[in-house]
């Protein structure tokens, strides 16, 4: 029971990541070696092929090796996000382990934090009806060099395009703007790392509390 598994289905590709994260973890280099990630451009086949790909991906580990699950909870495609969340909730429920629901926008920001060089990261993603999913994250550097943190200074929200532009114009900190594309599976390892971050702070999120973040009303 020492592995974390991440599932990302909020965009048309399937992103999977697994990593050994024993509490008494070996040196960081060993941990990096005992981790892998995979992105599959499944598109419309995502709902049908998700299970067989996960069963292949998990080997040589088994379900019993998992100590927590992380899932991209959205924003993203309603149906795709829902499928990943249902699978993750069911896995966590059956294996009786914690489930962390991670914002797809936070995972994008986390994945490019090195490029931002101290700036905030603003993430935008096209939403339905001409609106935009948006969030701005800051990365305060802790006193200990090993602890990293992410703080949503503007938490995930849906805005009309113009209002988002205004928010950015009035933003006081320097920021790096990134637009989410259709291939977010590559951020699966970031989803996993953000879950580990919560775990390291003592978070033990229960599956029942993790639901898709749609951002927009169904009607």
């Amino acid at each position: 029971m020492t592995y974390a598994l991440a599932i990302h289905t909020a965009s048309p590709d399937l992103g999977l990541a697994i990593r050994n994260f024993a509490a008494n973890s070996p040196a960081a280099t060993d941990r990096a070696a005992d981790s892998r990630t995979q992105t599959l451009p499944l598109g419309r086949d995502l709902s049908t092929h998700l299970h067989v790909h996960l069963m292949e991906f998990i080997q040589p580990q088994t379900w019993a090796d998992l100590s927590c699950i992380a899932v991209a909870k959205g924003p993203g495609g309603f149906t795709g996000t829902r499928i990943g969340v249902v699978m993750a909730r069911t896995l966590a429920q059956q294996l009786k382990i914690p489930l962390f629901g991670i914002s797809s926008l936070a995972a994008i920001a986390w994945s490019i934090r090195a490029q931002a060089a101290g700036k905030d990261i603003a993430v935008q993603m096209a939403a339905q009806r001409g609106e935009v999913h948006a969030a701005i994250y800051a990365f305060p550097t802790g006193s200990a060099s090993t602890t990293e943190a992410i703080v949503p200074t503007l938490a995930d929200i849906v805005l009309p395009q113009e209002q988002w532009q205004q928010t950015l114009e009035n933003w006081e900190n320097p920021y790096h703007l990134v637009e989410a594309d259709a291939g977010l599976g590559k951020t699966a390892m970031s989803v996993l790392e953000l879950a580990e971050l919560e775990w390291s702070k003592g978070g033990r999120s229960h599956w029942a509390d993790v639901l898709p973040f749609y951002g927009q009303s169904p009607v």
């Binding site: 299970h51 249902v86 069911t90 059956q94």
Partner: peptide, 12 residues
Amino acid sequence: VGLTAGKTLAMV
């Protein structure tokens, strides 16, 4: 939703 949950149960 039901299909994904069912397959996941069968898998795990």
